[in-house]
Computed example of a mutant assay.
Amino acid sequence: MTEFNQDKFESKAKKLVVEYLNYEINGKEVSIVFFKKGEVYAEAMLKDLDDHRFVVRYFYEEGVYFLEVPYCQSKYKSF
């Protein structure tokens, strides 16, 4: 397990959301509204300019990112 880097995590979290939304942007339209570092994983809630909310988790031991796409009022759906 490597040492956790919050800046790298936040950058990767934004990139995952941007890729999911298929935005052709640099991530400035996506902001982090919540961050938590736990014992097993780090978690951040992000939102875009249309107020769609996303949760990204990074599991330290596995080195895996998980993007959770909650229900949104527009065309974006859970999966």
Score class of each variant (00 low, 15 high):
residue 1 M to W: 08
residue 1 M to I: 09
residue 1 M to D: 10
residue 2 T to I: 15
residue 3 E to S: 15
residue 7 D to V: 13
residue 8 K to S: 13
residue 8 K to A: 14
residue 10 E to D: 13
residue 10 E to S: 14
residue 12 K to S: 15
residue 12 K to A: 15
residue 13 A to L: 11
residue 13 A to I: 12
residue 14 K to M: 14
residue 15 K to S: 15
residue 15 K to H: 14
residue 15 K to V: 13
residue 16 L to R: 06
residue 17 V to G: 11
residue 18 V to W: 10
residue 18 V to C: 14
residue 19 E to R: 11
residue 21 L to S: 09
residue 21 L to Y: 09
residue 22 N to F: 14
residue 23 Y to R: 02
residue 23 Y to N: 05
residue 24 E to T: 11
residue 24 E to Y: 12
residue 24 E to A: 09
residue 25 I to T: 15
residue 26 N to Y: 14
residue 26 N to W: 13
residue 26 N to H: 12
residue 27 G to K: 05
residue 27 G to T: 04
residue 28 K to T: 10
residue 28 K to C: 07
residue 29 E to K: 07
residue 29 E to T: 12
residue 29 E to Y: 10
residue 29 E to H: 09
residue 30 V to L: 07
residue 30 V to W: 08
residue 31 S to A: 07
residue 31 S to T: 11
residue 32 I to D: 02
residue 33 V to A: 12
residue 33 V to K: 14
residue 34 F to G: 09
residue 34 F to S: 14
residue 34 F to Q: 13
residue 35 F to I: 11
residue 36 K to C: 05
residue 36 K to I: 06
residue 37 K to Y: 04
residue 37 K to M: 06
residue 38 G to N: 12
residue 38 G to T: 04
residue 39 E to N: 12
residue 39 E to S: 12
residue 40 V to T: 11
residue 42 A to S: 05
residue 43 E to F: 10
residue 43 E to T: 15
residue 43 E to M: 14
residue 45 M to S: 11
residue 46 L to P: 06
residue 46 L to K: 03
residue 46 L to Y: 04
residue 46 L to T: 03
residue 46 L to I: 02
residue 47 K to M: 09
residue 47 K to P: 03
residue 47 K to C: 06
residue 47 K to I: 05
residue 47 K to A: 05
residue 47 K to F: 03
residue 48 D to L: 01
residue 50 D to H: 06
residue 50 D to Y: 07
residue 51 D to M: 12
residue 52 H to T: 06
residue 52 H to P: 02
residue 52 H to R: 15
residue 53 R to G: 02
residue 53 R to Y: 08
residue 54 F to I: 01
residue 56 V to F: 03
residue 56 V to G: 01
residue 56 V to C: 02
residue 57 R to N: 01
residue 57 R to W: 01
residue 57 R to P: 01
residue 58 Y to R: 00
residue 59 F to H: 03
residue 59 F to S: 01
residue 60 Y to C: 01
residue 64 V to T: 09
residue 64 V to M: 08
residue 64 V to L: 08
residue 64 V to Q: 08
residue 64 V to S: 07
residue 65 Y to G: 00
residue 65 Y to K: 00
residue 66 F to V: 11
residue 67 L to C: 03
residue 68 E to W: 02
residue 70 P to C: 01
residue 70 P to D: 03
residue 70 P to E: 05
residue 70 P to N: 04
residue 71 Y to I: 02
residue 72 C to E: 07
residue 73 Q to L: 07
residue 73 Q to M: 06
residue 74 S to Q: 04
residue 74 S to W: 04
residue 75 K to Q: 08
residue 75 K to C: 05
residue 76 Y to L: 00
residue 76 Y to D: 00
residue 77 K to H: 03
residue 78 S to V: 07
residue 78 S to W: 04
residue 78 S to N: 05
residue 78 S to C: 03
residue 78 S to D: 05
